[in-house]
Design a protein around this nucleic acid. Sequence first.
DNA 1: TGTAGGCATGTTGAACTTTGCTT
DNA 2: AAGCAAAGTTCAACATGCCT
Length: 701
Amino acid sequence: MGFDGWLLDVRFDGDEAVLWLRTAEGEKVKLRDRYTPDFYAEPLGMTAAQLRDLLEEHDLVAGVSTARRRSSIREMAETEVVNIRVDEVGNYRALLDEVDRMPCVAATYDGDLEHELKYLCDRSLIPLGHVEVEADGRALRSIAPIPRTLEVEPPPIRLLAFALKLGSSRGEILTFDENLEQEYAFAGPTRQVLRDFLDHFADLDPDIVASRPKDLSDLLTLSRLLGHRRFGRVTRDGPVLYGGRAHVSLSTYGRLSLAGLVERVQYTRLPARLSAEWAAGRAIESRQCYEARRRGVLLLHRGGFQPVMTMRELLYRDSGGLIFTPDVGLHENVASLDFESMFPNLIVRRNISYENVRDLRDREGFIVDFTRETLDRRLYFKHLRYRLPKDSQEWRWCEGRQLALKEILFCTYGYSGCWANRFGNFDTFTEVNRQARDALVESMNLARSRGFHTLYGNNDSLFLKRPGATREGFQDLAAAISDHVGLPMAVEARFRFLVLLPQKGETGIGAVNRYYGRLADGGHKHRGIELRRRDTSPFVARIQEEAIEALLGCETPEEVRTEGLSRALAVLEGACRRLRDREVPVEALKTSTVLRRDPERYKARLPHVAAAEALALTGTRVVKGSLIDYVYVDAGHGNPFRRVRPAGRGAGYDAEKYVQLVQEAGRSILMPFGVDPREADVPRPRRLEEFLVGVSGSVEG
DNA sequence: TGTAGGCATGTTGAACTTTGCTT
DNA sequence: AAGCAAAGTTCAACATGCCT
């Protein structure tokens, strides 16, 4: 029997691999294949053949042979080693440890690679990839990859996104569609709801389940307690699903969509069950191991930690790309020119890799091949996206794919010098930086020779100004730079007005990535300022946006500095008045901060931590990663728990605190104009009754 | 140390200084 | 003038988020 399908998962059981597939017809198939895990051993004081003969008789050994492998990605010559296959997965660790301790063994290799990675790598398979299968009943006869395409639509993998809202007697289970919009609500008595939902689960037979981890744990625990059908169990490390299914968080699914998730899993080369939630660094590490094994490179197990850098190295280390201090203030008719995916492009086009930084680059570097593939895919989906209607399903798929790949590509450069990277080294990181810097300096020189003045440059972008420059003028320059430097560059934005901001602290020195401006074709662009941050309340963010629009809604720079400025100040003052008059609804003042660690692990009683603890007391579950919504009620109170209140639990707020936040947001954008909204603010006289209200309120509290 | 690094900003709380009161 | 506590100030450490 032969058919094609998508490889959902591979798991291991004794001496077998269990493959889960979803066929094109929508059927789920489970197939068994023989799998004897292997590792390599390097002989010490004897030949590989002698070591092979020595190991041949071992009880746990299913097979042993000599092999020729490369000792590192740098080394092209092969050394003779012994390949040892273990009879079953359960005995793998024991035999590996035993061989590792043998006096006639110098080292073992490939021992800490996941079985999943080895299985897939040795068969050139990709998780969630399209495969052609031959099977004999339940036994796999052969499996071969079908080459990946640039199709936007994700494979026919079934996904179920849900959230639990269960009480002791009644409850609700919500399911969500691809945009995380509510799709259906199971509601009623808790037991009934649970039974209905588990029936739905069984009918749908999802391959990937998206939910909060705790919701899945609760679902699995409850279904066990109530004697329903079980789809998994809860371990110390969290919920585990049976049957080739994987779990993913709602936030990852919401950001990447199924298409983006598939990109991440396929890049990582490990089944979604393991890799769906991995951050970019681990994904890159995994992919590097896969590529190294494919290239016949031995992988030494991770021995302890990388050497820590010495003080001297720290002092002399080449940190970061080049930054030209921004020319703080208001500018007219500016364009920003960006190199497209500069760092991955440098790696690919200049052939920079861990093993060749110090050498002649006569052959393609280790990381170049799969970085090029990733870059090509990302750029394809990124550009295709522009041609699709913004709210179409295809657009979202494209966006998810390009976003997933973008995260990995950014980190490929960052991870090159990371301590955890077993192939990497700091020289590679430095080399990419050096090349980026040279490219930027060359670009600036070319721009200057054509009469452009650089206002600001950072890593891969230049902000340029030339009196009377047109759109075409900037585009010609970008094309000339692309041509000259050999890296793609394009006009990213054209500004009617651009304000580059200083650091808030002192001295008026320009800040990296802090600016705002009005674009030539309408619209605004902001970077780094309060309204870009999630932990800025909606009201403060909106006021800052309105102030910017008021400021820059002018025809000339002079007008900006006079009428624009006074309009912006009026916006800020109006906002402060509304706060003091309690006209601002409390929902608009909600601040959202992520709890980055478990509440008890904080040293400082930060507002969101206090709010989280208050929530925990009332039975709301708060864990590392929860988004905490809170409102300031008395920011200056000596007791941290009196400073804030979880959002949605009352109407009062600390108006002066929010006045302060609005003024800070105003100061951020108006600093280059020599105006401080705090000084312009004179609180109006307060009526006696207001003090009385305050007094009675505190007595009640 | 447990997987990107770098920059900027905001918050906390301990250490330190000033103020104001009493003797 | 000394003694003391409260109030105010400073600053390093902690913490989050954005950007590429």
